[in-house]
Simulated scan of single mutants.
Amino acid sequence: MSLNLKNEEIAMLRGELEMLMRERQALLRIAGSAAVFIAELDPEVLPEETYEAAEMLAECLNEASEETINDALSVMKAAITTEQPAL
């Protein structure tokens, strides 16, 4: 295998890995947002027609590993921290 071809393959794999890491960050933001949303829901004021959707979301979150949820919440915490103005 020529050096040029190997370098092209490495560059292609690097690009693919970077894309996957961006996708992972996006999915962690989604999962973190969903976890915060579910945690903040008040079943006393939640419209009855939304129970099923909230339950589906909660079940999906419960299927994720603890490590994934912790990573997701860390991403959200960092996002919230950077969005709030300093006092």
Rank of each mutant, 00 (worst) to 15 (best):
C60M: 15
A86Q: 09
M76V: 06
M19G: 07
S74G: 04
I30R: 12
E9K: 10
L87A: 12
N7G: 05
L17W: 08
L13F: 05
A72E: 00
R24Q: 07
I69K: 10
N62C: 15
D71N: 13
A79Q: 06
E49N: 13
F37L: 02
C60Q: 15
D71T: 05
N7D: 09
L41D: 01
Q25Y: 11
L5F: 06
T82V: 15
A34G: 00
Y51I: 13
A54D: 05
E8G: 09
S74A: 02
E44T: 15
A34T: 04
E55G: 15
V36S: 04
K77T: 07
E67G: 15
R14C: 07
E23Y: 14
R22C: 02
S74T: 07
R24N: 05
Y51D: 08
E52G: 10
M12V: 09
T81N: 12
A86H: 14
S2V: 02
I69E: 08
S74K: 10
L46N: 07
L73A: 01
I10A: 08
A72K: 06
K77L: 08
R14W: 06
E23T: 12
R24T: 09
K6P: 07
L3H: 12
L20S: 12
L87R: 12
A26F: 06
I38T: 00
A26V: 05
E55F: 14
R22E: 10
M56K: 14
M76Q: 04
A78M: 06
E66Y: 06
E63D: 11
G32V: 05
M12W: 05
I10W: 06
A78K: 07
Y51F: 14
I80S: 09
I10D: 00
I38A: 02
S33A: 07
V45N: 04
A35C: 00
D42L: 00
S2N: 13
R24G: 03
A11R: 09
L87F: 12
I10G: 03
P85I: 03
Q84S: 12
A11S: 06
S2C: 09
R29E: 10
I30A: 13
